[in-house]
Write a protein that binds this DNA or RNA. Structure first.
Lengths: 337, 337
DNA sequence: CTGTTAGCGCGTTCAA
DNA sequence: TTGAACGCGCTAACAG
């Protein structure tokens, strides 16, 4: 049998309200009654039922986190940041692995909606969810997107300065003497991809290099993509000497392909990754990459949500984080022609 | 404004009960009223409030998952298995990163208790939580532990056959000709560690090798531990030629230290990891390791929980999984003396 | 300072 | 087949 507030009240010979006041601390209670209540709580091992409380207060003290795959170290870092920040503020987080499945994403949005979470961190690339996001926001549940701004939806966002990221990666390779630089980008339709491409083009443009369309390839964010993209690029008559990759897993795939064909990195080709997942430093050659502050970005997402929950702000806001070049071993001076 | 069941009832000119019946499907409703209700639901964009439902039904359709660190790829895999299985059964999961902090673990248990989760997957190494676990179970919330049996507590568990894991790793090195085999184990007080050590000793015993106490080192599960342990072991007059590690990160640290001292793996020393996290195959030399079915174990944990929730079983049960030797590149024939 | 009352949104009696 | 009434556990409003 689980104790309720009534049992405690009976045990302490007071009214349920008094018990409630002791617990919430929102109203004064005489110290003798307080002690009796505390004793009763302890004796009956009473825990307030948060569901019932939420039914009244409209607060669940839980947040939703939707991401593609927690198994991906990038998202795991973000998740940790989200969870830590939420915990520090007294919130829990419901983890939702949406995969690449748009339908599943919508189903999760529905569930979080029905569970009355107090806010949602939305970290995916799905495209068909705008309507539902609008519905949820209409019901007063704040949403913050990660690395993605949704046109037409006044939603908070936590983003990396992807233009700059693409730019500094490209400049670095240029400084090393590379002129033929390929960009193995992410899926073509998302802003992350287009922003990085813009930075890439800008860097090329600054030094008067004409970007070659066949050097820009759109793939997905995994090892195989890198592996395949490198094979394609290498088959050209005049292949690139440097590769800028949309994430570290792609970069690892590229390197694998390069080595499989008998080349050496960074002696023959240079490769720069993106994200700086922890594997990057374990691998040989250790990956030179564009780091994003994943953990901090997760924390920031929660901070933005909490501002909305506290009604401190109603206008949408975008938090922009700066990418950073981490130089390790996968890039070298251009020597091949 | 968010629609409630009353609004829907008014819109459809029926009673709230009828709306409820349409939604739950637990009682017959005439088809004309059903259609009117459905239309009203759609029009008002109504979503049943799961909190209120839970208040009645005593079900929250959410599970708790407590683990040390989601950033560790091992736990991320487990978490994915948990999440997938939960989702398939209509449950959500609250993610709790307990770190190595015992106090935080207890706080999380309290929170999950208060939130009335329907079950808890408990995947940590904490030692001081037994009392609280007992309390929670007393309130009817089933718990399943991962890789850990708690003496005196009749709780379900999902375990790897760690004795066998230690055994096959050791036999493999023996078959390669090694006689001086070190065990870089986990924390000394947990069953995972002692079980693997037992397997190690058994394998040694079978071929008449006397285990050397100074070859068994207790460390924690990270890269630095491996790095430091290898340094210690290497400083011996008569160092080991093979290393069996409690997890892959430790093994990676060992290899790093070995190479730092100018040795080569597997030419000079052999190293076996444990877990088979995905990094293991990316690294050079690719790690030979003892794989555990992490994802499946996560799934199984949820399955056990659901059995309890459905009251199909009351006796505690332990699901045992088999470890598997994955041979890659980090072990070779013993040549050094 | 304290108890009584009412109601959050829903499902489940009980009658009709 | 349907509606009215009640209660899940809690907190807020109102009296006292």
């Amino acid at each position: 049998m689980v104790a309720t507030i009534k049992n405690v009240a009976a045990e302490a010979s007071v009214s349920p309200s008094t018990v409630s006041r002791v617990i919430t601390g929102k109203a004064p209670v005489s110290s003798d009654k307080r002690e009796k209540v505390l004793a009763a709580i302890k004796k009956l091992n009473y825990r307030p039922n948060i569901l019932a409380r939420g039914l009244k207060s409209k607060e669940t003290k839980t947040l939703g986190l939707i991401l593609p795959n927690i198994t991906n170290p990038f998202f795991a870092e973000v998740a940790k940041g989200v969870e830590d920040a939420a915990d520090a503020a007294g919130y829990n987080v419901i983890l939702c692995n949406a995969g690449d499945d748009g339908a599943k994403e919508i189903r999760y949005l529905e569930v979080l909606h029905k569970k009355w979470v107090d806010g949602i961190v939305y970290d995916t690339v799905g495209v068909d969810t705008v309507d539902y996001l609008r519905t949820i926001m209409g019901d007063g549940i704040p949403i913050v997107t990660m690395d993605r701004e949704i046109k037409g939806l006044p939603v908070d966002a936590v983003c990396l300065d992807n233009v700059k990221g693409g730019y500094i990666a490209t400049r670095y390779l240029i400084a090393l003497g590379h002129r033929k630089i390929a960009l193995i980008a992410g899926p073509v339709y998302i802003s992350t991809t287009t922003d990085r491409e813009e930075g890439y083009r800008r860097a090329l443009d600054e030094v008067g290099i004409q970007p070659r369309p066949d050097f820009i390839r759109y793939f997905s964010y995994d090892f195989e993509s890198g592996f395949n993209a490198a094979a394609e690029l290498l088959s050209f008559d005049d292949p690139p000497t440097g590769f800028i990759c949309a994430n570290d897993m792609i970069a690892l795939g590229v390197i694998q392909q390069l080595e499989r064909k008998g080349f050496q990195v960074p002696m023959d080709f240079s490769v720069v990754g993106f994200d700086d997942i922890y594997v990057s430093r374990l691998v040989k050659p250790a990956l030179t990459t564009i780091a994003q502050p994943k953990y901090e970005m997760g924390q920031k997402a929660v901070a933005l949500l909490l501002e909305h929950i506290a009604r401190k702000r109603k206008r949408p806001k975008t938090a922009l984080f700066a990418p950073e070049l981490v130089i390790r071993e996968s890039c070298g001076e251009q020597v091949r022609k």
